[in-house]
Design a protein around this nucleic acid. Structure first.
Lengths: 313, 313
DNA sequence: CTGTTAGCGCCTTCAC
DNA sequence: GTGAAGGCGCTAACAG
């Protein structure tokens, strides 16, 4: 009866429900899990989640999972090195989850080789596609391509780049896409500078770029680095966008409200989370085999930090 | 033996541990929970967590909880209304948690009256202290007082305010503290404008303030609203800080890298999370009764958005 | 159709 | 010192 037996009359159901509420009775989830062999809980392993991307993805994933009626467990790792990730994964597994979601698929494969029996959803494309069975991620490559082509279309000879930490698949992928777009247009591929996602690291990179007069356009792998970059450029007397154009990535909610509204690649993490969880449910219900990969479109939002280069000398 | 029986020799322990690893054996958490009547899991109920404060607090809490060996469940609510919160709480309770942590103690009391038997930690001061037994929060009032006094000390006649949504205890508290500081100095308390934490709402508020020449100093209840505010002030031709001084609250990592580095109240949410979890553990271990309230210091970080008002007319 | 029972995997207790 | 057994709360299967 408690489990929605259809034979029970609506009135009786209501009365019993009231009684349940009045007594504060809650079925013991542990007993149910023990019997069923499933916990009806999904675990998320986030890497480096103080950054905007991971943080908002975490929240979006919680929403998506809760909406399915599953419980939600969270393990968070600041470092992306393999041991930290394995650790976080162990934590989740020890707590009992029916499936695992990862935001950065750095090294789930090791576990899979050791026989991780539960489904894994990655919300970012792994470098090696065979590592994970289910992938739903932003079309980062598409967004980056659009950003570089926008800058090139404006007349810039080439585009410089502040990359994220290269241990992150996302950073690698954005960097690769930047490089590919430049090469496709037959342009020079300058060295990129590696930051750590923070505004402070963008600031540092800007100190370097400001010294080099040939730099007229920079693509930063996320908005916060772009913010730091703008600050140091401005301090060095290089105006944005008159002297240097800047494009970010993420479209953080403040991007449109900076004193120069930031041109950036918008990604919709919530859509990815919802779709990913949807697919995961199908796998858990036995209706899907895995081996699926889907990309959620991104789009360039042009605001005030990009313009055609001024004719020099 | 598996549970660290002291009688077992170290060598035997190592051998067994190896075997456990090799086989990939994990004790069934559900069975243990069923037997023990405890889940060794703590649930966090976050309200409105896309904002910087709640989001970073969530991550900090996860870290603190995981470090104690407890599992971590998350329920997230975008709205602060009583039903949403009750709902989130139910979700957590149904999933089985030994304790609940809330970031904004909007309405746990209703559950307590109905006999919520587990300890509750609030990471923000409830308006009614009797609602929650354990409270560790930032000293928001202290930070706000410092901010207002800083502005007054600079020579501003009074300080205007963009408040957060008034359903949030934090917003209420910051607003109260702003008002109290003004009154203590014998100044006028102007009407405040209510935003929703977003840069967009700060922008809207700025449109209003820009029209009023008597406004020379504004305290925004968080940094993102301050960012939006700066943008609309600038567009309206009011310079920051020459015409209008601004102070924010949070000290988001980008604050120091805006084109005008933001003067703001720094709060250390991670410290609050760690301390709160520490106290919670004592309660769970039976060594503490509750009824504790602790405040983590905040401090004003003076940067570039505040200065003495220029002599007018 | 309704009531009873077995057993999920663990840890503690008690018997040996 | 070691080993066996009981029972946590639930649901599915089965008996009445």
């Amino acid at each position: 009866m408690v489990n929605d037996d259809p034979r029970v009359s609506p009135e009786a159901r209501t009365r019993v429900k009231d009684a349940i509420d009045a007594l504060g009775y809650r079925p013991n989830i542990a007993a149910r899990s023990l019997l069923l062999g499933r916990t009806r809980t999904i675990g998320l392993l986030t890497v480096g989640s103080t950054a905007y991307g991971p943080a908002s993805l975490t929240l979006a994933t919680e929403r998506a999972v809760s909406n399915t009626g599953y419980g939600f467990r969270l393990a968070n790792t600041v470092d992306v090195d393999i041991d930290s990730v394995e650790n976080g994964l162990s934590l989740l597994l020890d707590q009992g989850v029916d499936a695992v979601i990862v935001n950065e698929p750095t090294s789930t494969f090791r576990h899979r080789r050791h026989g991780l029996a539960i489904p894994v959803l990655s919300l970012s494309e792994p470098l090696d596609l065979s590592d994970v069975e289910l992938v739903v991620g932003s079309d980062e490559a598409g967004g980056v391509k659009e950003a570089v082509e926008h800058l090139l279309g404006l007349g810039h000879a080439t585009v410089h780049h502040i990359a994220g930490p290269q241990e992150w698949p996302s950073s690698k992928r954005r960097r690769e896409a930047w490089k590919a777009a430049l090469e496709a247009a037959g342009r020079d591929v300058p060295d990129s500078i590696e930051g750590d996602w923070s505004a402070a690291s963008g600031y540092e990179a800007g100190l370097e770029f400001a010294k080099r007069p040939e730099v007229t356009a920079v693509f930063a792998a996320n908005d916060h680095m772009a913010i730091g970059l703008m600050r140091s450029l401005q301090r060095a007397g290089r105006r944005v966008p008159e002297d240097i154009s800047i494009v970010g990535f993420d479209d953080v909610p403040e991007a449109a409200f900076l004193s120069r509204a930031l041109t950036t690649v918008h990604q919709d993490l919530a859509v990815a989370a919802v779709r990913g969880v949807e697919l995961l449910m199908e796998v858990l219900d036995g209706g899907r085999e895995g081996g699926t990969i889907e990309r959620v479109p991104t789009r360039l939002v042009v605001r005030e930090t990009t313009q055609a280069p001024v004719a020099s000398s």
